[in-house]
C-alpha cells in the first residue's frame, strides 16, 4: 500500500508540474508550486515509512514549515516589484 501511495503521489506531482509549466497566469504557477510542495512533504513522509527510516520526517517537517516562504516572497515581488515594503504596503492594497 505504501508503494502504491508513493506512486499515486508521484502522479499527482506530475499533474502539478504540468500546471506549473502550462500556466497560463503567474498565479496558476504559484498555486501549482505550492501544491507540489505539499505533495513533496507527503511523498517524503510516505517514502520514509516505505524505507523503514522515519527520520526522513525531519525533512518533511522543514518543507511543511518553510515552503510557505517562497509563496509569500513571490506574491510580494509580483505585487510590489520589491521585497522592502511591509505586506500592507505602498499601494494600500493587500498581498
Amino acid at each position: 500500500m505504501l508503494l502504491a501511495a508513493t506512486l499515486g503521489l508521484l502522479t499527482a506531482m506530475l499533474l502539478a508540474l504540468a500546471r506549473a509549466v502550462l500556466g497560463p497566469t503567474l498565479y496558476d504557477r504559484i498555486l501549482a508550486v505550492n501544491s507540489f510542495g505539499t505533495k513533496t512533504v507527503l511523498f517524503i513522509a510516505v517514502a520514509g515509512f516505505l524505507a523503514g527510516r522515519p527520520d526522513f520526517l525531519d525533512i518533511a517537517l522543514v518543507y511543511a514549515l518553510i515552503n510557505f516562504i517562497g509563496t509569500v516572497a513571490v506574491l510580494k515581488l509580483s505585487h510590489y516589484g520589491e521585497f522592502g515594503a511591509s505586506a500592507t504596503g505602498a499601494h494600500g492594497d493587500d498581498l
Binding site: Y27, N34, L61, F68, T71, L95
Partner: peptide
C-alpha cells in the same frame, strides 16, 4: 507536527494567493 503546520500554511498560502 507536519499535519499541524500544513493545516496552517497551506490554507494561508491559498488565501493570500486568491486575494492577490
Amino acid at each position: 507536527l507536519i499535519a499541524f503546520f500544513l493545516m496552517f500554511t497551506s490554507p494561508t498560502a491559498s488565501h493570500a494567493l486568491a486575494q492577490a
